[in-house]
Every structure is written in C-alpha cells, then in structure tokens.
C-alpha cells in the first residue's frame, strides 16, 4: 500500500519538474525556421538615398540585419548596444526600418498618401537616428512590412546574423542585451569571420 503512494508522489514530482521547466521558457521566443537557410532576397530603397539595397550586395561579408522602427520602445532599449557594436567595427549592420509609419499606432496611416508616407518615414527615421546615434552602415525602408513578413518578423526588434554565403546563422528575438552580445553574438561573428 505504501509503495503505491510513493509512486503517486514520484509521478507528481515529475509533473512539477516538467511544468516548472515550462515556466522558465519564454513563449515569445518562437524558434525561427530560417536558421541555416538563405536570407530571403529583397530590394528596398535606402533611407535618405535614391539607391536600393539587396542582401546580395553584401555577399562575401558577415553582416547583421537589424529590424527597427522609431515607434518601437524595445528598439530604443537595444540601440546603445548596436551603437557600441558599430564602434567595434567587426561587421556592417544593416537596419531594416519596419513599417515606420504604418506600425505606429498613434498615426492613422489610412489618411496618409503613399508618396507622403515615404517622406514621413524618412523624416521620422532620420530624426531618430540623429537623436540616438546611427550604428547602421545603411538602413532600408520596409514601409508595408512585406519584407518583414518574408523574414518571419513578428515584432521589432529582431536581428539576423548572416554569413558570407548569405545564410542566416542566428536570430535574436527582442533586443540584443549586452550579455547576448558578449556571450553569443560576438563569438559567433568572430567564428564566421575567420
């Protein structure tokens, strides 16, 4: 009889361990299906320039694609880390400005004309970069968020590390913390740059 109760206790303890482990996981971190796959192609206008940028332009280099927007509070948190990384000059950081106008809940984007939208997005993005520092080799404007969808973005900031062959090797969901930079990103960059 005693034996039976011990088994119930063991089963309960196992359940507690299982559920307890579940509590330590972050449900917002959805494993990206892009790791080990080629970075999706796109061609988007560069911020403040006439030229466009495509990932193929950086073929042969290790680079970072950072999804950001001026309306995104976590991007503000992350920004100093990116500025710091840019100063180390280990790799080019490309900014993907994600839905600068349409993503801002404070603006009614249905009232903004398409040609006005790009203008407004450029102004807002440039103002933000002057204010907080510009870590980007260049930024591109993804006004409607289609490229974001192609990269499986579901919330800024997100960051993709892309290797010399154009393959995504790592994705950071949410802001890059100083710890994540030191312990994960920098060692991986050094390894890929070899």
């Amino acid at each position: 009889m005693n034996n039976k109760y011990i088994w119930i206790l063991v089963a309960f303890a196992l359940l507690v361990v299982l559920l307890g482990y579940g509590l330590t996981l972050n449900p917002r971190e959805i494993p990206s299906p892009f790791i080990g796959k080629a970075a999706p192609e796109f061609s988007l206008p560069q911020l403040g320039k006439e030229a466009t940028f495509a990932p193929a332009d950086l073929q042969g280099k290790v680079w970072l694609l950072n999804v950001w927007a001026s309306w995104c509070p976590s991007c503000r948190v992350e920004h100093p880390v990116l500025v710091d990384l840019a100063k180390r000059d280990v790799l080019p950081i490309v900014g993907l400005n994600y839905k600068e106008v349409r993503g801002d809940g404070a603006l009614d984007s249905s009232k903004i004309a398409p040609e006005e939208e790009k203008q407004l997005a450029t102004e807002r993005a440039q103002k933000w970069l002057t204010q907080h520092g510009d870590p980007y080799a260049l930024s591109v404007l993804d006004l409607d968020g289609r490229v974001g969808i192609d990269y499986g973005v579901y919330g800024a900031p997100e960051t993709f590390l892309i290797d010399k062959a154009g393959v995504i090797r790592f994705k950071q969901i949410g802001p890059i913390t100083p710890e994540a930079l030191e312990t994960t990103l920098l060692p991986l960059i050094a390894e890929l740059n070899q």
Binding site: P27, R102, G155
Partner: peptide, 22 residues
Amino acid sequence: LVCQNETIAASNADLANDLREQ
C-alpha cells in the same frame, strides 16, 4: 504570432492584419 492564443482570423494585431492582407 503576436497575440499567441488567437487565430490570425480573430486577431486584431497589426501583423495579423498584414498577414490577412497577404
């Protein structure tokens, strides 16, 4: 992906809107 317990059909999130459009 934003409101994780909602379907894309039901969600009001911006991304759900974009995905429906797509």
